[in-house]
Design a protein around this nucleic acid. Structure first.
Lengths: 254, 254
DNA sequence: GTTTGTCGTTGCAGCATGTGCAACTTTCAT
DNA sequence: ATGAAAGTTGCACATGCTGCAACGACAAAC
Protein backbone atom coordinates (compact mmCIF):
# COMPACT_ATOMS: atom_id res chain seq x y z
CA UNK A 1 0.00 0.00 0.00
CA UNK A 2 2.68 2.47 0.97
CA UNK A 3 5.49 2.25 -1.52
CA UNK A 4 8.20 3.61 0.73
CA UNK A 5 7.35 1.41 3.68
CA UNK A 6 6.86 -1.55 1.40
CA UNK A 7 10.35 -1.14 0.04
CA UNK A 8 11.84 -0.67 3.48
CA UNK A 9 10.18 -3.80 4.78
CA UNK A 10 11.32 -5.82 1.81
CA UNK A 11 14.86 -5.09 2.90
CA UNK A 12 14.50 -7.03 6.13
CA UNK A 13 13.86 -10.56 4.81
CA UNK A 14 16.55 -9.84 2.26
CA UNK A 15 19.07 -9.14 4.99
CA UNK A 16 17.87 -12.13 6.97
CA UNK A 17 19.43 -14.30 4.29
CA UNK A 18 22.78 -12.81 5.07
CA UNK A 19 24.68 -9.52 5.13
CA UNK A 20 24.47 -7.35 2.03
CA UNK A 21 25.98 -4.09 0.92
CA UNK A 22 24.22 -1.02 -0.37
CA UNK A 23 24.43 -1.89 -4.02
CA UNK A 24 23.12 -5.41 -3.57
CA UNK A 25 20.19 -4.10 -1.62
CA UNK A 26 19.46 -1.45 -4.23
CA UNK A 27 19.62 -4.00 -7.02
CA UNK A 28 17.35 -6.49 -5.32
CA UNK A 29 14.82 -3.81 -4.50
CA UNK A 30 15.17 -2.47 -8.02
CA UNK A 31 15.63 1.11 -6.86
CA UNK A 32 18.38 3.66 -7.12
CA UNK A 33 21.31 3.41 -4.71
CA UNK A 34 20.41 6.68 -3.05
CA UNK A 35 16.90 5.46 -2.40
CA UNK A 36 18.16 2.27 -0.82
CA UNK A 37 20.59 4.29 1.23
CA UNK A 38 17.84 6.43 2.71
CA UNK A 39 15.74 3.41 3.53
CA UNK A 40 18.66 1.64 5.15
CA UNK A 41 19.48 4.75 7.12
CA UNK A 42 15.99 4.94 8.48
CA UNK A 43 16.04 1.26 9.39
CA UNK A 44 19.42 1.84 10.96
CA UNK A 45 18.23 4.71 13.14
CA UNK A 46 15.56 2.44 14.53
CA UNK A 47 18.09 -0.29 15.16
CA UNK A 48 16.44 -2.75 12.82
CA UNK A 49 19.51 -2.81 10.72
CA UNK A 50 23.08 -2.77 11.73
CA UNK A 51 26.23 -2.05 9.88
CA UNK A 52 29.16 -4.32 10.37
CA UNK A 53 32.80 -3.33 9.99
CA UNK A 54 32.94 -4.15 6.30
CA UNK A 55 30.08 -1.68 5.76
CA UNK A 56 27.65 -4.43 4.91
CA UNK A 57 24.25 -4.34 6.52
CA UNK A 58 22.79 -6.96 8.81
CA UNK A 59 19.62 -7.27 10.82
CA UNK A 60 19.97 -5.38 14.07
CA UNK A 61 19.38 -6.14 17.71
CA UNK A 62 16.18 -4.14 17.88
CA UNK A 63 14.45 -6.82 15.92
CA UNK A 64 15.37 -9.48 18.44
CA UNK A 65 14.52 -7.26 21.36
CA UNK A 66 11.12 -6.50 19.90
CA UNK A 67 10.33 -10.11 19.19
CA UNK A 68 11.31 -11.03 22.71
CA UNK A 69 9.35 -8.22 24.31
CA UNK A 70 6.31 -9.14 22.26
CA UNK A 71 6.51 -12.77 23.32
CA UNK A 72 6.84 -11.83 26.97
CA UNK A 73 3.96 -9.43 26.74
CA UNK A 74 1.65 -12.03 25.31
CA UNK A 75 -1.06 -13.09 27.64
CA UNK A 76 -2.15 -16.60 26.72
CA UNK A 77 -5.14 -16.37 28.93
CA UNK A 78 -6.48 -13.28 27.23
CA UNK A 79 -5.94 -14.79 23.83
CA UNK A 80 -7.29 -18.21 24.69
CA UNK A 81 -10.38 -17.12 26.56
CA UNK A 82 -12.74 -16.59 23.60
CA UNK A 83 -11.69 -19.95 22.19
CA UNK A 84 -12.37 -21.65 25.50
CA UNK A 85 -15.81 -20.08 25.62
CA UNK A 86 -16.48 -21.30 22.12
CA UNK A 87 -15.28 -24.79 22.99
CA UNK A 88 -17.50 -24.88 26.04
CA UNK A 89 -20.37 -23.66 23.89
CA UNK A 90 -19.91 -26.56 21.51
CA UNK A 91 -19.31 -29.43 23.94
CA UNK A 92 -20.99 -28.24 27.09
CA UNK A 93 -18.32 -29.58 29.43
CA UNK A 94 -15.86 -27.94 31.75
CA UNK A 95 -12.88 -26.48 29.91
CA UNK A 96 -9.53 -25.69 31.52
CA UNK A 97 -6.40 -23.83 30.53
CA UNK A 98 -3.18 -24.53 32.41
CA UNK A 99 0.46 -23.48 32.38
CA UNK A 100 3.64 -24.85 33.91
CA UNK A 101 5.78 -22.92 36.34
CA UNK A 102 8.09 -23.77 39.23
CA UNK A 103 7.44 -27.50 39.29
CA UNK A 104 3.72 -26.85 39.38
CA UNK A 105 1.00 -26.86 36.79
CA UNK A 106 -1.62 -24.21 37.42
CA UNK A 107 -5.08 -23.69 36.09
CA UNK A 108 -5.18 -20.17 34.75
CA UNK A 109 -8.62 -20.21 33.19
CA UNK A 110 -11.78 -22.24 33.41
CA UNK A 111 -15.18 -22.26 31.79
CA UNK A 112 -17.71 -24.23 33.80
CA UNK A 113 -19.76 -27.08 32.50
CA UNK A 114 -23.32 -26.34 31.46
CA UNK A 115 -24.40 -29.55 33.15
CA UNK A 116 -25.46 -29.41 36.76
CA UNK A 117 -22.64 -31.70 37.90
CA UNK A 118 -19.50 -29.58 38.22
CA UNK A 119 -16.04 -30.68 39.02
CA UNK A 120 -13.93 -29.17 41.72
CA UNK A 121 -11.17 -26.95 40.47
CA UNK A 122 -10.24 -23.34 40.83
CA UNK A 123 -8.32 -20.86 38.76
CA UNK A 124 -4.86 -20.47 40.25
CA UNK A 125 -4.99 -23.84 41.92
CA UNK A 126 -2.16 -26.28 41.20
CA UNK A 127 -3.40 -29.37 39.40
CA UNK A 128 -2.70 -32.96 40.38
CA UNK A 129 0.53 -32.91 38.45
CA UNK A 130 1.13 -36.64 38.21
CA UNK A 131 -2.23 -37.49 36.69
CA UNK A 132 -3.86 -34.47 35.04
CA UNK A 133 -3.93 -34.46 31.23
CA UNK A 134 -2.76 -30.86 31.08
CA UNK A 135 0.17 -31.59 33.38
CA UNK A 136 1.28 -34.50 31.21
CA UNK A 137 1.20 -32.29 28.13
CA UNK A 138 3.22 -29.53 29.72
CA UNK A 139 5.83 -31.78 31.27
CA UNK A 140 6.12 -33.99 28.21
CA UNK A 141 7.51 -31.03 26.32
CA UNK A 142 10.45 -30.46 28.66
CA UNK A 143 13.89 -31.52 27.45
CA UNK A 144 14.72 -35.05 28.47
CA UNK A 145 17.06 -34.47 31.44
CA UNK A 146 14.79 -31.90 33.01
CA UNK A 147 11.72 -34.04 32.46
CA UNK A 148 13.41 -36.88 34.29
CA UNK A 149 14.59 -34.56 37.07
CA UNK A 150 11.09 -33.24 37.64
CA UNK A 151 9.54 -36.70 37.48
CA UNK A 152 11.92 -37.89 40.15
CA UNK A 153 11.26 -34.90 42.37
CA UNK A 154 7.52 -35.46 42.44
CA UNK A 155 5.37 -37.40 44.86
CA UNK A 156 2.94 -39.89 43.42
CA UNK A 157 -0.16 -39.86 45.60
CA UNK A 158 -2.56 -42.76 44.92
CA UNK A 159 -5.67 -40.65 44.43
CA UNK A 160 -7.38 -43.65 42.85
CA UNK A 161 -6.49 -47.11 41.64
CA UNK A 162 -5.67 -45.61 38.28
CA UNK A 163 -3.33 -42.88 39.51
CA UNK A 164 0.20 -42.83 38.11
CA UNK A 165 2.13 -45.01 40.59
CA UNK A 166 5.72 -43.80 40.22
CA UNK A 167 8.29 -41.83 38.26
CA UNK A 168 8.99 -44.64 35.82
CA UNK A 169 5.33 -44.99 34.87
CA UNK A 170 5.03 -41.21 34.62
CA UNK A 171 8.01 -40.89 32.31
CA UNK A 172 6.62 -43.67 30.14
CA UNK A 173 3.33 -41.86 29.91
CA UNK A 174 5.04 -38.55 29.11
CA UNK A 175 6.91 -40.20 26.24
CA UNK A 176 3.61 -41.49 24.85
CA UNK A 177 1.97 -38.10 25.24
CA UNK A 178 4.88 -36.37 23.57
CA UNK A 179 4.51 -38.81 20.71
CA UNK A 180 0.77 -38.57 20.15
CA UNK A 181 0.34 -34.86 20.85
CA UNK A 182 -2.56 -35.19 23.26
CA UNK A 183 -3.22 -36.63 26.68
CA UNK A 184 -5.93 -38.13 28.84
CA UNK A 185 -6.74 -38.66 32.47
CA UNK A 186 -9.28 -41.41 32.94
CA UNK A 187 -10.17 -41.44 36.60
CA UNK A 188 -6.61 -40.86 37.74
CA UNK A 189 -7.51 -38.05 40.06
CA UNK A 190 -11.14 -38.70 40.91
CA UNK A 191 -12.57 -42.09 40.11
CA UNK A 192 -15.55 -40.81 38.19
CA UNK A 193 -13.97 -37.97 36.24
CA UNK A 194 -12.37 -38.23 32.81
CA UNK A 195 -10.42 -35.68 30.90
CA UNK A 196 -8.76 -35.09 27.51
CA UNK A 197 -6.17 -32.42 26.84
CA UNK A 198 -4.29 -30.83 23.96
CA UNK A 199 -1.23 -28.55 23.86
CA UNK A 200 -1.00 -24.88 22.91
CA UNK A 201 2.31 -24.08 21.26
CA UNK A 202 4.25 -20.84 20.78
CA UNK A 203 6.08 -19.66 17.68
CA UNK A 204 9.04 -21.89 18.38
CA UNK A 205 6.86 -24.97 18.72
CA UNK A 206 7.33 -25.25 22.47
CA UNK A 207 4.25 -26.04 24.53
CA UNK A 208 3.28 -22.90 26.39
CA UNK A 209 -0.06 -24.01 27.79
CA UNK A 210 -2.51 -26.88 27.65
CA UNK A 211 -6.26 -26.98 27.52
CA UNK A 212 -8.59 -29.77 28.42
CA UNK A 213 -12.18 -30.93 28.50
CA UNK A 214 -13.31 -32.66 31.70
CA UNK A 215 -16.53 -34.46 32.45
CA UNK A 216 -17.81 -36.95 35.00
CA UNK A 217 -18.73 -40.49 33.96
CA UNK A 218 -22.37 -39.85 34.71
CA UNK A 219 -22.52 -37.27 31.93
CA UNK A 220 -20.33 -38.87 29.27
CA UNK A 221 -18.34 -42.06 29.12
CA UNK A 222 -14.62 -41.94 28.41
CA UNK A 223 -15.32 -43.15 24.88
CA UNK A 224 -17.73 -40.35 24.17
CA UNK A 225 -15.29 -37.88 25.63
CA UNK A 226 -12.61 -39.05 23.23
CA UNK A 227 -14.91 -38.24 20.35
CA UNK A 228 -14.41 -34.61 21.29
CA UNK A 229 -10.69 -34.89 20.71
CA UNK A 230 -10.70 -33.48 17.15
CA UNK A 231 -12.69 -30.47 18.28
CA UNK A 232 -10.37 -29.96 21.23
CA UNK A 233 -7.27 -30.22 19.09
CA UNK A 234 -8.66 -27.79 16.53
CA UNK A 235 -9.31 -25.34 19.33
CA UNK A 236 -5.83 -25.76 20.78
CA UNK A 237 -4.33 -25.30 17.33
CA UNK A 238 -6.37 -22.16 16.75
CA UNK A 239 -5.14 -20.73 20.05
CA UNK A 240 -1.58 -21.65 19.09
CA UNK A 241 -1.99 -19.92 15.75
CA UNK A 242 -3.29 -16.74 17.26
CA UNK A 243 -0.73 -16.82 20.06
CA UNK A 244 2.02 -17.13 17.49
CA UNK A 245 0.61 -14.28 15.44
CA UNK A 246 -0.04 -16.44 12.42
CA UNK A 247 -1.67 -14.68 9.47
CA UNK A 248 -5.33 -15.04 8.41
CA UNK A 249 -6.80 -16.61 11.53
CA UNK A 250 -10.02 -14.80 10.63
CA UNK A 251 -13.06 -16.99 10.95
CA UNK A 252 -14.66 -15.46 7.86
CA UNK A 253 -13.59 -17.70 5.02
CA UNK A 254 -16.88 -17.60 3.00
CA UNK B 1 15.30 10.23 7.42
CA UNK B 2 12.33 8.88 5.57
CA UNK B 3 9.20 10.15 7.23
CA UNK B 4 6.89 7.39 6.08
CA UNK B 5 9.19 4.57 7.03
CA UNK B 6 10.05 6.27 10.28
CA UNK B 7 6.38 6.42 11.23
CA UNK B 8 5.83 2.82 10.21
CA UNK B 9 8.75 1.62 12.28
CA UNK B 10 7.62 3.58 15.29
CA UNK B 11 4.49 1.49 15.27
CA UNK B 12 6.37 -1.71 16.02
CA UNK B 13 7.80 -0.94 19.47
CA UNK B 14 4.47 0.61 20.27
CA UNK B 15 2.70 -2.65 19.52
CA UNK B 16 5.34 -4.62 21.37
CA UNK B 17 4.01 -3.08 24.57
CA UNK B 18 0.68 -4.68 23.89
CA UNK B 19 -2.17 -4.77 21.38
CA UNK B 20 -3.54 -1.44 20.23
CA UNK B 21 -6.36 -0.33 17.98
CA UNK B 22 -6.19 2.01 15.04
CA UNK B 23 -7.05 5.14 16.95
CA UNK B 24 -4.51 4.54 19.68
CA UNK B 25 -1.82 4.00 17.10
CA UNK B 26 -2.80 7.15 15.23
CA UNK B 27 -2.82 9.18 18.41
CA UNK B 28 0.58 7.97 19.55
CA UNK B 29 2.12 8.57 16.15
CA UNK B 30 0.38 11.92 16.03
CA UNK B 31 -0.99 11.34 12.57
CA UNK B 32 -4.44 11.09 11.06
CA UNK B 33 -6.32 7.81 11.42
CA UNK B 34 -6.23 7.18 7.71
CA UNK B 35 -2.48 7.59 7.66
CA UNK B 36 -2.04 5.14 10.47
CA UNK B 37 -4.38 2.75 8.70
CA UNK B 38 -2.29 2.77 5.56
CA UNK B 39 0.91 2.19 7.49
CA UNK B 40 -0.64 -0.64 9.46
CA UNK B 41 -1.95 -2.18 6.26
CA UNK B 42 1.49 -2.17 4.75
CA UNK B 43 2.97 -3.70 7.88
CA UNK B 44 0.15 -6.21 7.83
CA UNK B 45 0.81 -7.25 4.24
CA UNK B 46 4.36 -8.04 5.20
CA UNK B 47 3.20 -10.01 8.21
CA UNK B 48 4.91 -7.75 10.70
CA UNK B 49 1.62 -6.87 12.21
CA UNK B 50 -1.35 -9.03 12.83
CA UNK B 51 -4.92 -8.29 13.56
CA UNK B 52 -6.64 -10.18 16.30
CA UNK B 53 -10.36 -10.87 16.47
CA UNK B 54 -11.15 -7.70 18.35
CA UNK B 55 -9.59 -5.76 15.48
CA UNK B 56 -6.69 -4.64 17.57
CA UNK B 57 -3.23 -4.91 16.09
CA UNK B 58 -0.37 -7.00 17.44
CA UNK B 59 3.09 -7.84 16.25
CA UNK B 60 2.95 -10.63 13.70
CA UNK B 61 4.71 -13.91 13.18
CA UNK B 62 6.96 -12.57 10.46
CA UNK B 63 8.88 -10.61 13.02
CA UNK B 64 9.61 -13.71 15.06
CA UNK B 65 10.46 -15.73 11.99
CA UNK B 66 12.87 -13.05 10.81
CA UNK B 67 14.56 -12.75 14.16
CA UNK B 68 14.99 -16.50 14.28
CA UNK B 69 16.27 -16.77 10.73
CA UNK B 70 18.73 -14.00 11.36
CA UNK B 71 20.06 -15.73 14.45
CA UNK B 72 20.44 -19.01 12.62
CA UNK B 73 22.19 -17.31 9.75
CA UNK B 74 24.76 -15.76 12.01
CA UNK B 75 28.16 -17.28 11.71
CA UNK B 76 30.03 -16.74 14.96
CA UNK B 77 33.23 -17.77 13.41
CA UNK B 78 33.04 -15.19 10.67
CA UNK B 79 32.13 -12.48 13.14
CA UNK B 80 34.66 -13.45 15.76
CA UNK B 81 37.63 -13.96 13.49
CA UNK B 82 38.82 -10.36 13.21
CA UNK B 83 38.54 -10.00 16.99
CA UNK B 84 40.59 -13.13 17.51
CA UNK B 85 43.26 -11.80 15.19
CA UNK B 86 43.30 -8.56 17.11
CA UNK B 87 43.54 -10.40 20.42
CA UNK B 88 46.42 -12.50 19.14
CA UNK B 89 48.06 -9.33 17.90
CA UNK B 90 47.92 -7.80 21.36
CA UNK B 91 48.92 -10.75 23.52
CA UNK B 92 50.89 -12.91 21.13
CA UNK B 93 49.53 -16.21 22.41
CA UNK B 94 47.38 -18.88 20.86
CA UNK B 95 43.72 -17.90 20.71
CA UNK B 96 40.86 -20.38 20.35
CA UNK B 97 37.14 -20.17 19.64
CA UNK B 98 34.94 -23.11 20.58
CA UNK B 99 31.29 -24.12 20.50
CA UNK B 100 29.26 -26.84 22.15
CA UNK B 101 27.33 -29.46 20.23
CA UNK B 102 26.24 -33.04 20.82
CA UNK B 103 28.06 -33.56 24.11
CA UNK B 104 31.26 -32.29 22.56
CA UNK B 105 33.05 -28.99 22.60
CA UNK B 106 34.76 -28.22 19.32
CA UNK B 107 37.40 -25.73 18.35
CA UNK B 108 36.03 -23.83 15.40
CA UNK B 109 38.75 -21.25 15.03
CA UNK B 110 42.32 -20.74 16.10
CA UNK B 111 45.01 -18.11 15.74
CA UNK B 112 48.47 -19.48 16.44
CA UNK B 113 50.89 -18.09 18.93
CA UNK B 114 53.62 -15.80 17.65
CA UNK B 115 56.05 -17.60 19.93
CA UNK B 116 57.94 -20.56 18.56
CA UNK B 117 56.40 -22.97 21.06
CA UNK B 118 52.97 -23.94 19.76
CA UNK B 119 50.39 -26.06 21.39
CA UNK B 120 48.72 -28.99 19.79
CA UNK B 121 45.14 -28.35 18.75
CA UNK B 122 43.26 -28.36 15.50
CA UNK B 123 40.18 -26.63 14.22
CA UNK B 124 37.29 -29.07 14.28
CA UNK B 125 38.93 -31.18 16.94
CA UNK B 126 36.94 -31.92 20.11
CA UNK B 127 38.54 -30.37 23.17
CA UNK B 128 39.31 -32.17 26.41
CA UNK B 129 35.82 -31.47 27.67
CA UNK B 130 36.41 -32.11 31.36
CA UNK B 131 39.32 -29.72 31.73
CA UNK B 132 39.40 -27.11 28.98
CA UNK B 133 38.44 -23.57 29.97
CA UNK B 134 36.19 -23.15 26.93
CA UNK B 135 34.38 -26.41 27.73
CA UNK B 136 33.71 -25.30 31.29
CA UNK B 137 32.27 -22.03 30.04
CA UNK B 138 30.00 -23.68 27.52
CA UNK B 139 28.74 -26.39 29.84
CA UNK B 140 28.35 -24.06 32.80
CA UNK B 141 25.63 -22.25 30.90
CA UNK B 142 23.42 -25.29 30.47
CA UNK B 143 20.29 -25.51 32.64
CA UNK B 144 20.96 -27.36 35.88
CA UNK B 145 19.45 -30.79 35.13
CA UNK B 146 21.10 -31.03 31.73
CA UNK B 147 24.41 -29.87 33.10
CA UNK B 148 24.27 -32.64 35.66
CA UNK B 149 23.18 -35.20 33.06
CA UNK B 150 26.10 -34.30 30.80
CA UNK B 151 28.58 -34.27 33.68
CA UNK B 152 27.51 -37.75 34.65
CA UNK B 153 27.74 -39.03 31.11
CA UNK B 154 31.35 -37.96 30.70
CA UNK B 155 34.56 -39.83 31.31
CA UNK B 156 37.19 -38.12 33.43
CA UNK B 157 40.60 -39.06 32.03
CA UNK B 158 43.48 -38.16 34.34
CA UNK B 159 45.54 -36.30 31.76
CA UNK B 160 47.62 -34.80 34.55
CA UNK B 161 47.58 -34.60 38.32
CA UNK B 162 45.46 -31.48 38.02
CA UNK B 163 42.78 -32.91 35.71
CA UNK B 164 39.19 -32.79 36.92
CA UNK B 165 38.80 -36.14 38.76
CA UNK B 166 35.04 -36.80 38.60
CA UNK B 167 31.54 -35.49 37.93
CA UNK B 168 31.15 -33.97 41.38
CA UNK B 169 34.32 -31.93 41.05
CA UNK B 170 33.35 -30.92 37.54
CA UNK B 171 29.90 -29.73 38.59
CA UNK B 172 31.45 -27.76 41.42
CA UNK B 173 33.83 -26.11 39.00
CA UNK B 174 31.02 -25.35 36.56
CA UNK B 175 29.07 -23.63 39.32
CA UNK B 176 32.09 -21.46 40.09
CA UNK B 177 32.63 -20.66 36.42
CA UNK B 178 28.98 -19.77 35.98
CA UNK B 179 29.33 -17.45 38.92
CA UNK B 180 32.51 -15.64 37.95
CA UNK B 181 31.91 -15.46 34.21
CA UNK B 182 35.29 -16.79 33.13
CA UNK B 183 37.27 -19.99 33.40
CA UNK B 184 40.79 -21.34 33.54
CA UNK B 185 42.65 -24.52 32.87
CA UNK B 186 45.96 -24.59 34.67
CA UNK B 187 47.76 -27.69 33.52
CA UNK B 188 44.65 -29.84 33.54
CA UNK B 189 45.22 -31.15 30.05
CA UNK B 190 48.95 -30.86 29.57
CA UNK B 191 51.08 -30.24 32.59
CA UNK B 192 52.88 -27.23 31.19
CA UNK B 193 50.04 -25.46 29.44
CA UNK B 194 47.73 -22.89 30.99
CA UNK B 195 44.65 -21.29 29.61
CA UNK B 196 42.04 -18.62 30.39
CA UNK B 197 38.66 -18.39 28.70
CA UNK B 198 35.67 -16.06 28.47
CA UNK B 199 32.17 -16.59 27.12
CA UNK B 200 30.53 -15.12 24.01
CA UNK B 201 26.84 -14.55 24.52
CA UNK B 202 23.93 -14.19 22.11
CA UNK B 203 21.06 -11.70 22.30
CA UNK B 204 19.26 -13.75 24.90
CA UNK B 205 22.31 -13.89 27.13
CA UNK B 206 22.96 -17.57 26.50
CA UNK B 207 26.55 -18.60 25.94
CA UNK B 208 26.95 -19.44 22.25
CA UNK B 209 30.72 -19.80 22.10
CA UNK B 210 33.80 -19.36 24.21
CA UNK B 211 37.21 -18.01 23.43
CA UNK B 212 40.46 -18.55 25.22
CA UNK B 213 44.11 -17.63 25.40
CA UNK B 214 46.54 -20.52 25.88
CA UNK B 215 50.24 -20.48 26.56
CA UNK B 216 52.89 -22.85 27.90
CA UNK B 217 54.55 -22.20 31.25
CA UNK B 218 57.84 -21.56 29.56
CA UNK B 219 56.44 -18.48 27.89
CA UNK B 220 54.25 -17.02 30.63
CA UNK B 221 53.38 -18.16 34.10
CA UNK B 222 49.79 -18.73 35.09
CA UNK B 223 49.84 -15.44 37.00
CA UNK B 224 50.97 -13.47 34.00
CA UNK B 225 48.37 -15.19 31.88
CA UNK B 226 45.65 -14.09 34.29
CA UNK B 227 46.70 -10.50 33.75
CA UNK B 228 45.38 -10.88 30.24
CA UNK B 229 41.91 -11.66 31.56
CA UNK B 230 40.54 -8.10 31.22
CA UNK B 231 41.69 -7.94 27.62
CA UNK B 232 40.21 -11.35 26.91
CA UNK B 233 36.90 -10.44 28.48
CA UNK B 234 36.72 -7.19 26.57
CA UNK B 235 37.30 -9.11 23.37
CA UNK B 236 34.64 -11.70 24.22
CA UNK B 237 32.21 -8.94 25.06
CA UNK B 238 32.94 -7.16 21.81
CA UNK B 239 32.23 -10.35 19.89
CA UNK B 240 29.04 -10.82 21.88
CA UNK B 241 28.00 -7.28 21.05
CA UNK B 242 28.57 -7.67 17.37
CA UNK B 243 27.02 -11.12 17.31
CA UNK B 244 23.91 -9.72 18.96
CA UNK B 245 23.81 -6.86 16.49
CA UNK B 246 24.25 -4.22 19.16
CA UNK B 247 24.35 -0.63 17.88
CA UNK B 248 27.52 1.50 17.56
CA UNK B 249 30.15 -1.22 17.65
CA UNK B 250 32.18 1.05 15.40
CA UNK B 251 35.70 1.45 16.64
CA UNK B 252 35.68 5.13 15.77
CA UNK B 253 34.36 6.74 18.94
CA UNK B 254 35.81 10.27 19.33
C1' DG C 1 52.71 7.69 -8.31
C1' DT C 2 49.28 7.87 -11.37
C1' DT C 3 45.29 5.79 -13.18
C1' DT C 4 41.21 3.27 -13.14
C1' DG C 5 37.35 1.24 -11.06
C1' DT C 6 34.10 0.36 -7.37
C1' DC C 7 31.16 1.83 -3.92
C1' DG C 8 29.12 5.10 -0.72
C1' DT C 9 27.36 9.85 -0.24
C1' DT C 10 25.21 14.45 -1.31
C1' DG C 11 22.19 18.23 -3.44
C1' DC C 12 18.66 19.06 -6.30
C1' DA C 13 14.51 19.47 -9.56
C1' DG C 14 10.28 17.20 -10.55
C1' DC C 15 6.51 14.86 -9.65
C1' DA C 16 4.86 10.55 -7.69
C1' DT C 17 3.12 9.44 -3.39
C1' DG C 18 1.72 9.99 1.02
C1' DT C 19 -1.20 13.18 3.70
C1' DG C 20 -5.30 15.02 6.08
C1' DC C 21 -10.00 16.00 5.45
C1' DA C 22 -14.76 14.92 5.25
C1' DA C 23 -18.17 11.79 4.22
C1' DC C 24 -19.62 7.03 4.59
C1' DT C 25 -20.06 2.44 6.83
C1' DT C 26 -20.00 -0.67 10.52
C1' DT C 27 -20.33 -2.01 15.17
C1' DC C 28 -21.88 -1.87 19.61
C1' DA C 29 -24.24 -0.08 23.67
C1' DT C 30 -28.29 1.94 25.49
C1' DA D 1 -34.48 2.45 17.33
C1' DT D 2 -30.94 5.72 18.17
C1' DG D 3 -26.63 7.46 19.02
C1' DA D 4 -21.84 7.33 19.68
C1' DA D 5 -17.42 5.41 18.59
C1' DA D 6 -14.31 3.21 15.64
C1' DG D 7 -12.91 1.77 10.99
C1' DT D 8 -12.85 2.71 5.95
C1' DT D 9 -12.90 5.16 1.39
C1' DG D 10 -12.15 8.84 -2.27
C1' DC D 11 -10.09 12.89 -3.26
C1' DA D 12 -7.37 17.41 -3.83
C1' DC D 13 -3.19 19.18 -2.36
C1' DA D 14 1.63 19.67 -1.49
C1' DT D 15 4.89 17.19 1.07
C1' DG D 16 8.58 14.42 0.91
C1' DC D 17 10.31 10.70 -1.84
C1' DT D 18 12.64 9.50 -6.15
C1' DG D 19 16.27 9.15 -9.54
C1' DC D 20 19.91 11.59 -11.55
C1' DA D 21 24.42 13.19 -11.88
C1' DA D 22 28.33 14.79 -9.75
C1' DC D 23 31.49 14.16 -5.94
C1' DG D 24 34.41 11.75 -2.55
C1' DA D 25 36.77 7.84 -0.56
C1' DC D 26 39.24 3.90 -1.04
C1' DA D 27 41.66 0.08 -3.18
C1' DA D 28 43.64 -2.32 -6.87
C1' DA D 29 46.25 -2.30 -11.07
C1' DC D 30 49.81 -0.80 -13.88
Amino acid sequence: MSQTVDRALRILPLLAEGPANLEQVARRLDVHKSTALRLLRTLHEHGFVYRQQDQRYRLGARLFALAQQAVEGLDIREIAHPYLLDLNERCGHTVHLAVHQDDEVLYIDKVDSRYPVRMYSRIGKPVAITVAAVAKLLLADLPEPERRAVAERLDYPAYTARSTPDAAAFLGELAAVRQQGWATDFGGHEESINCVGAPVRGVDGRVVAACSISAPNVVVTADRLLELLPLLRRTADAISAEYSGKPQPLKESS
